[in-house]
Protein backbone atom coordinates (compact mmCIF):
# COMPACT_ATOMS: atom_id res chain seq x y z
CA UNK A 1 0.00 0.00 0.00
CA UNK A 2 2.01 2.92 -1.26
CA UNK A 3 -0.18 5.90 -1.72
CA UNK A 4 2.74 8.11 -2.56
CA UNK A 5 5.40 6.22 -4.49
CA UNK A 6 7.92 8.97 -4.25
CA UNK A 7 7.78 8.97 -0.46
CA UNK A 8 10.90 6.79 0.06
CA UNK A 9 12.83 9.03 -2.30
CA UNK A 10 11.65 12.12 -0.49
CA UNK A 11 12.50 10.46 2.80
CA UNK A 12 16.00 9.75 1.59
CA UNK A 13 16.49 13.32 0.48
CA UNK A 14 15.19 14.53 3.82
CA UNK A 15 17.67 12.30 5.60
CA UNK A 16 20.55 13.57 3.51
CA UNK A 17 19.47 17.11 4.18
CA UNK A 18 19.05 16.33 7.85
CA UNK A 19 22.51 14.81 8.06
CA UNK A 20 24.06 17.73 6.25
CA UNK A 21 22.74 20.41 8.55
CA UNK A 22 22.27 18.20 11.59
CA UNK A 23 18.83 19.73 11.74
CA UNK A 24 16.54 17.01 12.90
CA UNK A 25 14.46 19.16 15.21
CA UNK A 26 10.78 18.89 14.56
CA UNK A 27 10.88 15.20 13.73
CA UNK A 28 9.58 12.81 16.33
CA UNK A 29 11.65 9.79 17.31
CA UNK A 30 9.25 7.45 15.55
CA UNK A 31 9.47 9.49 12.37
CA UNK A 32 13.24 9.43 12.51
CA UNK A 33 13.39 5.68 13.02
CA UNK A 34 11.06 5.21 10.10
CA UNK A 35 13.04 7.55 7.88
CA UNK A 36 16.37 5.99 8.79
CA UNK A 37 14.94 2.54 8.13
CA UNK A 38 13.86 3.62 4.68
CA UNK A 39 17.14 5.34 3.96
CA UNK A 40 19.23 2.30 4.88
CA UNK A 41 17.07 -0.24 3.13
CA UNK A 42 16.94 1.17 -0.37
CA UNK A 43 14.06 -1.16 -1.19
CA UNK A 44 10.63 0.28 -1.82
CA UNK A 45 8.11 0.13 0.99
CA UNK A 46 6.19 -3.12 1.02
CA UNK A 47 8.65 -4.95 -1.26
CA UNK A 48 9.29 -8.45 0.17
CA UNK A 49 13.10 -8.49 -0.08
CA UNK A 50 13.46 -11.80 1.80
CA UNK A 51 11.10 -13.65 -0.54
CA UNK A 52 12.99 -12.40 -3.59
CA UNK A 53 16.26 -13.84 -2.22
CA UNK A 54 15.02 -17.41 -1.85
CA UNK A 55 16.20 -20.21 -4.11
CA UNK A 56 13.40 -22.74 -3.97
CA UNK A 57 9.63 -22.89 -4.05
CA UNK A 58 9.07 -23.84 -0.41
CA UNK A 59 11.26 -21.03 0.93
CA UNK A 60 9.60 -18.44 -1.31
CA UNK A 61 6.12 -19.47 -0.20
CA UNK A 62 7.21 -19.44 3.43
CA UNK A 63 8.78 -15.98 3.14
CA UNK A 64 5.93 -14.52 1.09
CA UNK A 65 2.83 -16.11 2.58
CA UNK A 66 4.03 -18.16 5.57
CA UNK A 67 2.38 -21.36 4.36
CA UNK A 68 2.60 -24.27 1.94
CA UNK A 69 0.60 -24.90 -1.22
CA UNK A 70 -1.39 -27.70 -2.82
CA UNK A 71 -1.87 -28.36 -6.54
CA UNK A 72 -5.07 -27.13 -8.17
CA UNK A 73 -6.65 -27.65 -11.59
CA UNK A 74 -8.48 -24.33 -11.24
CA UNK A 75 -5.42 -22.34 -12.25
CA UNK A 76 -4.71 -21.70 -15.91
CA UNK A 77 -1.03 -21.08 -16.53
CA UNK A 78 -0.43 -19.80 -20.02
CA UNK A 79 3.23 -20.06 -21.02
CA UNK A 80 4.95 -21.16 -24.24
CA UNK A 81 6.21 -24.75 -24.66
CA UNK A 82 9.44 -23.38 -26.05
CA UNK A 83 10.81 -19.91 -25.44
CA UNK A 84 13.34 -18.97 -28.09
CA UNK A 85 14.36 -15.87 -26.20
CA UNK A 86 14.65 -16.34 -22.45
CA UNK A 87 14.82 -12.58 -21.95
CA UNK A 88 11.15 -12.14 -22.82
CA UNK A 89 8.83 -15.02 -21.98
CA UNK A 90 5.12 -14.12 -21.98
CA UNK A 91 3.40 -15.75 -19.03
CA UNK A 92 -0.21 -15.33 -17.92
CA UNK A 93 -2.07 -16.74 -14.92
CA UNK A 94 -5.81 -16.94 -14.49
CA UNK A 95 -7.86 -18.71 -11.85
CA UNK A 96 -11.46 -19.63 -11.20
CA UNK A 97 -10.77 -20.13 -7.50
CA UNK A 98 -12.90 -17.98 -5.15
CA UNK A 99 -11.68 -14.97 -3.15
CA UNK A 100 -8.29 -14.69 -4.80
CA UNK A 101 -6.04 -12.23 -2.97
CA UNK A 102 -2.63 -12.87 -4.53
CA UNK A 103 -0.89 -14.39 -7.54
CA UNK A 104 2.84 -15.14 -7.76
CA UNK A 105 5.01 -16.63 -10.48
CA UNK A 106 8.01 -18.76 -9.52
CA UNK A 107 10.80 -20.01 -11.78
CA UNK A 108 12.95 -22.43 -9.73
CA UNK A 109 15.83 -22.67 -12.24
CA UNK A 110 16.39 -18.92 -12.26
CA UNK A 111 19.08 -17.53 -9.91
CA UNK A 112 16.24 -16.46 -7.61
CA UNK A 113 12.98 -18.43 -7.64
CA UNK A 114 10.45 -15.64 -7.17
CA UNK A 115 9.99 -13.48 -10.26
CA UNK A 116 6.83 -11.49 -9.57
CA UNK A 117 4.12 -11.34 -6.92
CA UNK A 118 0.81 -9.57 -7.37
CA UNK A 119 -1.73 -8.38 -4.82
CA UNK A 120 -5.32 -8.83 -5.94
CA UNK A 121 -7.76 -6.76 -3.86
CA UNK A 122 -11.48 -7.42 -3.83
CA UNK A 123 -13.02 -6.31 -7.11
CA UNK A 124 -9.93 -7.16 -9.15
CA UNK A 125 -10.02 -10.30 -11.30
CA UNK A 126 -7.84 -13.32 -10.59
CA UNK A 127 -5.81 -12.73 -13.73
CA UNK A 128 -2.43 -11.31 -14.64
CA UNK A 129 -0.26 -11.33 -17.76
CA UNK A 130 3.37 -10.28 -17.81
CA UNK A 131 6.75 -10.97 -19.43
CA UNK A 132 9.53 -12.65 -17.49
CA UNK A 133 13.17 -13.61 -17.95
CA UNK A 134 14.22 -17.26 -17.83
CA UNK A 135 17.86 -18.26 -17.41
CA UNK A 136 17.30 -21.79 -18.74
CA UNK A 137 14.70 -24.50 -19.19
CA UNK A 138 12.61 -24.64 -16.03
CA UNK A 139 9.33 -25.45 -14.50
CA UNK A 140 7.19 -22.31 -14.16
CA UNK A 141 4.96 -22.32 -11.09
CA UNK A 142 1.84 -20.20 -10.73
CA UNK A 143 0.79 -19.65 -7.12
CA UNK A 144 -2.69 -18.41 -6.25
CA UNK A 145 -3.89 -17.44 -2.79
CA UNK A 146 -7.61 -18.20 -2.53
CA UNK A 147 -9.65 -17.79 0.62
CA UNK A 148 -6.45 -17.78 2.67
CA UNK A 149 -5.01 -20.98 1.17
CA UNK A 150 -2.30 -21.44 -1.43
CA UNK A 151 -2.71 -23.38 -4.66
CA UNK A 152 -0.27 -24.01 -7.48
CA UNK A 153 -0.11 -25.12 -11.09
CA UNK A 154 3.04 -25.62 -13.12
CA UNK A 155 4.32 -26.06 -16.63
CA UNK A 156 7.78 -26.65 -18.07
CA UNK A 157 9.08 -24.06 -20.51
CA UNK A 158 12.04 -25.01 -22.70
CA UNK A 159 14.44 -22.12 -23.14
CA UNK A 160 16.66 -22.02 -26.23
CA UNK A 161 18.66 -18.90 -25.34
CA UNK A 162 18.82 -17.92 -21.67
CA UNK A 163 17.84 -14.43 -20.63
CA UNK A 164 19.55 -13.76 -17.33
CA UNK A 165 23.29 -13.59 -17.93
CA UNK A 166 25.52 -12.95 -20.91
Amino acid sequence: MIQSPDAPDRARRMILKGAAVCGVAGLGLADMTLLIGQALAADAKGWPAEAFKQKNEADVLKALYGKTATASDKIALDAPEIAENGAVVPIAVKSSLPKVTAIAILIPHNPYTLTAAYKIPEGTEAMVANRLKMAKTSKVIAVVESDGKLYTASKTVKVTVGGCGG
Partner: peptide
Protein backbone atom coordinates in the same frame (compact mmCIF):
# COMPACT_ATOMS: atom_id res chain seq x y z
CA UNK B 1 -5.45 0.42 -4.89
CA UNK B 2 -6.80 -1.98 -7.49
CA UNK B 3 -3.58 -3.82 -8.33
CA UNK B 4 -0.06 -4.06 -6.90
CA UNK B 5 2.89 -5.69 -8.62
CA UNK B 6 5.95 -6.65 -6.59
CA UNK B 7 8.75 -7.23 -9.06
CA UNK B 8 12.20 -8.77 -8.83
CA UNK B 9 15.07 -8.61 -11.31
CA UNK B 10 13.61 -11.43 -13.46
CA UNK B 11 10.86 -9.27 -14.93
CA UNK B 12 11.74 -8.47 -18.55
CA UNK B 13 13.19 -5.14 -19.67
CA UNK B 14 10.52 -2.53 -20.46
CA UNK B 15 7.96 -4.52 -18.50
CA UNK B 16 4.41 -5.21 -19.58
CA UNK B 17 1.52 -6.11 -17.31
CA UNK B 18 -2.17 -6.72 -17.84
CA UNK B 19 -4.97 -7.11 -15.31
CA UNK B 20 -8.69 -6.35 -14.97
CA UNK B 21 -10.86 -4.88 -12.24
CA UNK B 22 -14.49 -4.01 -11.61
Amino acid sequence: TVFTALWGPAVSKNPYVKFAFK
